[in-house]
C-alpha cells in the first residue's frame, strides 16, 4: 500500500499550551487507523490539523507526497480528505438532502445528476433516506451524527476522518456502523477514526494509535497497543475494557 497522508513533527500551540506536541502520523491507501486516548489527549486537535480546520504551529503535512500544510479545509476536502465532527454541525436552515448536495457539489465536484446520485447513495448508506426532506435543525443527536457521516461521504473522500461518530449508538447500531465502515474500506477509502468505544473500533482498524498529553504514546497492532502497560496506565485503566 502506498502512502496517502503523511504528517511530520506536528505541533499546535495555544499560547504556552501545546495541545499537539511533535506528532508524526501516516496513513496508507485503504488503511484504517484508530486513535484512542483520554479526554484532552489531543485527538480532535490532531484531526483538525489533518483536515485543515486549524493551521499548524509547526510541522508539515503531505498528501500523496505533495505538501498541503498551507491549504485550508475546503481545499483538502476537494482533494479527497473528508471529515465528520465530534459535535455535529448540520446546516440547520437546509434539508438533510440539501446538506448532502452542498457536500457533493462543492467538496466532491459532482454536477447535477451525479451529485443527486451521490447524495442519495450516501443517505441510503447511513439510513437517512426517510429524513431526506426534513429540516436538518429538527434532527435528534443520533440523526445528526448520521448526517455528519453521510455528508462527509457525499464529498467522495479518499481519506475519511471520523471523530467519535459511534458515541450514543446502541450496540446494534454500532455493529451496523462497523459494517458501513468496513464497506467503505472495501471501496478503497482510507479511515482515521477517533473513538472511545474501543470494542467496535478494533473490529475495523488495522492499526491503533494512543495519544496522551498531545503526544503519541503507543502505536501498532490494535491488540498489542491495548495490552501496552503505558496505554493501560494512561487511558484504559484495565485490560478488561476491550
Amino acid at each position: 500500500m502506498s502512502l496517502l497522508l503523511e504528517a511530520n513533527g506536528l505541533v499546535k500551540r495555544y499560547g504556552a499550551l501545546a495541545v499537539v506536541n511533535g506528532v508524526d502520523f501516516r496513513v496508507a491507501e485503504n488503511e484504517a487507523v484508530g486513535i484512542v486516548g483520554p479526554n484532552g489527549a489531543g485527538k480532535t486537535s490532531l484531526l483538525n490539523l489533518l483536515s485543515g480546520a486549524v493551521p499548524v504551529s509547526e510541522g508539515r503535512i503531505a498528501l500523496r507526497g505533495a505538501i498541503i500544510t498551507g491549504q485550508d479545509a475546503a481545499w483538502r476536502c476537494r482533494h479527497g480528505i473528508g471529515r465528520s465532527h465530534q459535535v455535529p454541525k448540520p446546516f440547520g436552515g437546509m434539508t438533510v438532502f440539501e446538506n448532502l448536495l452542498v457536500a457533493a457539489t462543492q467538496g466532491g465536484g459532482f454536477i447535477q445528476h451525479e451529485a443527486y446520485d451521490r447524495a442519495v447513495d450516501s443517505l441510503e448508506l447511513c439510513g437517512m433516506l426517510s429524513a431526506a426532506n426534513r429540516s436538518a435543525e429538527t434532527l435528534g443527536l443520533l440523526e445528526r451524527k448520521r448526517l455528519e457521516l453521510a455528508r462527509a461521504l457525499a464529498t467522495g473522500p479518499e481519506l475519511l476522518l471520523l471523530d467519535e461518530i459511534g458515541g450514543g449508538l446502541t450496540d446494534g447500531e454500532a455493529l451496523d456502523l462497523v459494517e458501513v465502515i468496513l464497506d467503505l474500506r472495501r471501496r478503497g477509502i482510507a479511515i482515521v477514526w477517533i473513538e472511545h468505544i474501543v470494542h467496535i473500533l478494533v473490529k475495523v482498524v488495522t492499526r491503533l494509535v494512543c495519544m496522551d498529553a498531545g503526544r503519541i504514546i503507543a502505536e501498532g497492532d490494535p491488540q498489542s497497543v491495548l495490552k501496552d502497560p503505558v496505554v493501560i496506565s494512561a487511558y484504559l485503566g484495565s485490560e478488561e475494557v476491550v
Binding site: 447511513c126 439510513g127 451496523d176 456502523l177 464497506d183
Partner: peptide, 18 residues
Amino acid sequence: QHGFARRSVPPPPAAMRI
C-alpha cells in the same frame, strides 16, 4: 431507515485528486 444500511457507495472519483 432505522439504522445504518449495509450497502456500498461508489468509489471516490479519480478526476479530482492531487
